[in-house]
Simulated assay, not measured.
Amino acid sequence: MLYLLLSILASTSLVFIFKMFQRYNVHTFQAIVVNYVTCVVVGFLFSGGSAALQPEVFGRSWVIYAFVLGTIFIGTFYLIALTTHKVGVTAASVATKISLVIPVLFSLLVLQNSLKDYTFINYIGMFAALVAIILSSVRPKTDSSEQHASPLLMFLLPFIIFLNSGIADSLINYTNANLLQQHEAPQFTMLTFSASAMVGLLVLLYLLISGKTTFYRKSILAGILLGIPNYFSIYFLIKALYAFGNDGAFLYPVNNIGIILAGALGAVIFFKEKLTKINLAGLGMAVLALILISYQEIIANLF
């Protein structure tokens, strides 16, 4: 239970840090690039060097998937930051965590390796997840977060995060099921973070050389503050999986519900984010969706 709580806190802190970037005028993309460099360094140090990439790793069949995932990760991370600024913490949390609908469908329709028979109730939960994104993204016209975002953009940003996060999780499922050996997981994770860092550094270098941006020193500190909880959000999630007997079908929904609720509560308390009745309905719908998708596992573990 401790690892589950730590995973929820670490994951929730990410969107809060993005909100702080807005308050202190941190250059978000620069901080995200430094964040992924930090993830690589922390991963290397925390593993005692066991996750170091060996030359033979680049001959593995899963290398291309690690690079694709790394690219998706940094793009999605930037969109989460943008959504946090333009729409709100709650919408960003809901869109990210409700995206488990996509890997569930991918497992059912493509991998065909589901560990359970999905019922009509499960599919209702998947539909409710989409409704939750729409409801949690609606903002009143008086909300200051709408100043630079049109109603269409306020829906598209969470929806694109939903798609990207779901596609990333599906790629991880596919790679894990068909290409990756268990002992290769640390190298795969490290290469994915390294790919995110490389893509970010290349884009940042281009922007600096072309004179389209100037590097700000506070981006370094901001990126380090973001990168440490980013790495440990994954680390604690893996430890929680082991603690719950690798029952991901139970753990992921519970973990995601915790992040959504903690994100909404923190947004209201720390950032005075105003949630309308529609937003609260979306929040409730998100929790209901996660429960309906995994109600069999929840009942089995509780009773």
Rank of each mutant, 00 (worst) to 15 (best):
V94E: 09
A289R: 05
H148A: 11
Q296K: 10
V268R: 13
Y235K: 08
R217W: 12
V87T: 11
T192Q: 11
F58W: 14
F270K: 06
K212F: 10
M154Y: 02
I234W: 03
I8F: 11
L202G: 07
F77W: 06
I80P: 00
I160F: 12
N35M: 01
F193A: 09
N164A: 15
Y118H: 10
A51D: 03
Q22K: 13
V26I: 15
Y252T: 14
F106A: 09
Q147F: 05
A197L: 11
A95H: 01
V89F: 02
V101G: 02
L153H: 08
A222Q: 03
S136L: 08
S13M: 13
S233W: 01
F188E: 00
T83R: 02
A95C: 02
I8P: 05
I259F: 11
M154D: 04
I209H: 06
F188T: 00
I228V: 15
Y252I: 15
K212W: 04
L208P: 01
T38W: 09
L53W: 11
L191R: 10
Y252N: 14
L79D: 03
Y216E: 07
K277T: 13
I98F: 01
F16Y: 08
V89P: 01
P158M: 05
Q147V: 13
I124A: 14
V287R: 01
L53G: 09
T28P: 05
G223V: 12
L201R: 02
I278N: 11
L237N: 14
K277Y: 04
F270E: 05
V138D: 04
I257D: 00
L221N: 07
C39H: 07
E184R: 14
E146N: 14
Y24L: 11
F120D: 00
F159C: 10
A129F: 12
I293L: 12
M126D: 03
F44A: 08
V26M: 05
T83D: 12
V40S: 02
I167C: 08
L82E: 09
N173M: 04
L53R: 14
A267F: 09
A132Y: 06
I134F: 15
L108E: 05
G227H: 08
I64H: 03
M285E: 00
V37L: 14
G88E: 06
H183G: 08
K97A: 03
K239Y: 07
T119C: 02
V87F: 11
L204M: 15
M1D: 10
L53N: 12
S196G: 11
L251M: 15
L45F: 09
S93T: 14
P55D: 04
T214Q: 13
Y65L: 13
K218L: 09
Y174A: 12
F21K: 08
F29H: 06
P158E: 11
L275H: 09
L202D: 05
I72T: 10
K86I: 03
A262G: 10
H27D: 07
P55E: 07
I167W: 02
P151I: 14
M190G: 07
F106H: 12
L171E: 02
A132K: 09
D247R: 11
A264C: 06
G125Q: 08
I298W: 01
L45M: 10
V40C: 07
T71C: 15
L302V: 04
Y216R: 12
L6V: 13
F120P: 00
